[in-house]
């Protein structure tokens, strides 16, 4: 009888050990528990030449040392663009003082209507970490091609209104400009906060 109990003990012990080992291996293969899609180095480093909402010529070096969230949209977009920027704004609020380590670069794919003045009013509505960027068609094209971001503009209607189709991706770069994470318009603020905290803490 004692022998059987001993065997059972050993078996249970073995089972526990193997579960622990498997858990350990799983942890090894996923050292960082990102919630967002991990695109570590899969996209080119941050690089662009554009004009910001104050009319200043800027490039990626102006944002070195900051975590950069890159999003393409247009201000006449009533739903998805402000909803996405609103989510990012909520996420930054939740970061508290660390929000200053982050910049959201909103690149207009509709520079004709999105003048620097329009962009300035627009990004100000979302928070001090928001930057509005515009450029010539060539500048915009080289950036959208770099990140394989598709966009298109419909023909204007009789009132001159037109719709723009654009990417729903938010590309996240670390302080060195390396691509790290991908969020989407539908990503929840809490998930973004979780991963931004990891990135800020050197993850």
């Amino acid at each position: 009888m004692r022998r059987i109990i001993g065997t059972l003990h050993q078996r249970r012990w073995l089972a526990l050990m193997s579960i622990a080992l498997m858990a350990g291996l799983a942890a090894c293969s996923q050292p960082k528990h990102w919630v967002l899609q991990d695109i570590n180095g899969l996209m080119p480093t941050l690089q662009f030449n554009l004009t910001d909402q104050d009319g200043q010529t800027v490039n990626a070096s102006n944002y070195r040392g900051k975590i950069v969230l890159l999003y393409f949209g247009y201000t006449h977009c009533p739903d998805i663009c402000p909803a996405t920027l609103g989510t990012l704004s909520l996420a930054l609020h939740q970061l508290g003082a660390d929000a200053d380590k982050v910049r959201v670069l909103f690149v207009s794919v509709d520079p004709k209507r999105d003048t620097t003045a329009v962009l300035k009013q627009y990004v100000t509505a979302f928070g001090p970490q928001f930057v509005g960027l515009r450029g010539s068609d060539d500048q915009l094209e080289s950036l959208t091609k770099r990140y394989r971001v598709a966009y298109s503009r419909d023909k204007p209607d009789t009132q001159g209104n037109y719709l723009v189709t654009h990417s729903s991706a938010v590309f996240i770069f670390d302080g060195t400009g390396k691509s790290r994470l991908l969020a989407l318009s539908a990503t929840k603020a809490g998930d973004i906060v979780h991963d931004l905290k990891l990135l800020i803490s050197g993850g």
């Binding site: 201000t75 739903d79 329009v118």
Partner: peptide, 11 residues
């Protein structure tokens, strides 16, 4: 209604 500046379309 989500307010945006100027006369931008709202949702």
């Amino acid at each position: 209604i989500r307010l945006l500046p100027g006369d931008l379309p709202l949702a």
